[in-house]
Design a protein around this nucleic acid. Sequence first.
DNA 1: CTTAATAATTAAGCGAACTAAATTATATAG
DNA 2: CTATATAATTTAGTTCGCTTAATTATTAAG
Lengths: 150, 150
Amino acid sequence: MTNTDPFIATFQQWTDIFMHRSMRKFIHFARESGLSMSMIGTLFHLNKKGCAGVTNLGDHLGVTSAASSQMLERLVQQELILRTEDPTDRRVKQIVLTEKGSHLLDEGIRARQGWLDDLVGILSREEKELIKGALDLMISKANQLEGSIE
Amino acid sequence: MTNTDPFIATFQQWTDIFMHRSMRKFIHFARESGLSMSMIGTLFHLNKKGCAGVTNLGDHLGVTSAASSQMLERLVQQELILRTEDPTDRRVKQIVLTEKGSHLLDEGIRARQGWLDDLVGILSREEKELIKGALDLMISKANQLEGSIE
DNA sequence: CTTAATAATTAAGCGAACTAAATTATATAG
DNA sequence: CTATATAATTTAGTTCGCTTAATTATTAAG
């Protein structure tokens, strides 16, 4: 293709494998849990940020606040999130994960990475250390770029 | 959590970052292209396998052949796939990517990994080599597991 | 040839997720 | 106090992706 850099080629190859293996189970899990992509994205976002408003979450997904409100209502009914008034500005609602929502998310992540256990199973201690070192390096470098995206 | 293995912990941490950074742009791209998740999955599958039948693709997505047929019709209208008769069994249709479909997919992948260029930019040659080695190792190990999933 | 099985499509209908517009409640500026 | 702006919600209506059931075409088996 246009990418001649062998590093990028390798990275894309790994991404392909990872997506294929890892996403299938996760999507299956989401379907069975009755969660849409928007819901999944919202739960992940809440897991990361801790708390957010309705319009805020909608913007994050690229939908209107009306759509966001409706989706959040469904999540409230499923008891996956909690919706309370912001005491400092009573127009805004504070959305947070419930215990149940947090657990469900963990379960999904575990489903996603079930095959990881198989992979770990056929790695030697030295190989695991090599890979862990590389991942740690990428994590720290990625965090270094943090400023550019909110 | 329940995972005490530092390797798995690191892996999940990296996955979090990767998903966050990489999926957002890709989902945005899919929306703008008017492609559903099923369509995306189908295009990727075709890209990998080259050719497939209608029922086959539906099974792969976990939907009925009717649903698959309808979705493929939309992809045909968008000129992203080609649907021809299998000469050896005229009941089955052979679905392949068009040039346009292949290009669109490439574009999506590039959108997904736009931030990768930024990451590459702040890696030294030695760091890139370390990471590439780790990725190559994981790729080969993952392929070793290939038999378990079709 | 007849019957049964298989692949794809079509038809009808349903629920989910979205939008625009109106509504309610609260906050801010003049 | 009166505008105006902002946050969330409700309402009505659309579209999408799916299902089941029926239909068409082809193949395979007796």
